[in-house]
């Protein structure tokens, strides 16, 4: 098994934390099946919606922010500061 590189190179401590987080999320989703939902739009009332939607949103915004940064970021300071 090759060592992952780049952004996926995860050191052991982080891996442990991540693993715990995944377990917690799974537990939360599991519990989610047993509570009564009051979704207003249908899909938001389905169990585990918040989990996947939250993850997707987070990834999306990171991608959006980094993409914008690569377009509009400049090094150094401002002329009139």
């Amino acid at each position: 098994m090759a060592t992952p590189r780049g952004i996926l190179a995860i050191e052991p401590r982080r891996r442990r934390v991540l693993a715990i987080a995944v377990v917690v999320l799974l537990v939360l989703v599991g519990v989610d099946f047993f509570v009564e939902h009051h979704g207003a739009f249908g899909i938001d009332g389905t169990p585990g919606f918040a989990a996947w939607y939250g993850f997707a949103s987070a990834v999306f915004f990171v991608a959006l922010a980094l993409g914008w940064a690569s377009l509009a970021a400049v090094r150094g300071g401002r002329r009139d500061d």
Binding site: A21, L25, A50, Y53, G54, F55
Partner: peptide, 13 residues
């Protein structure tokens, strides 16, 4: 629960 899932999922990201 909803909010916790949202947060933990973002945390994993």
């Amino acid at each position: 629960l909803f909010q916790l899932q949202l947060i933990v999922a973002a945390g994993i990201c």
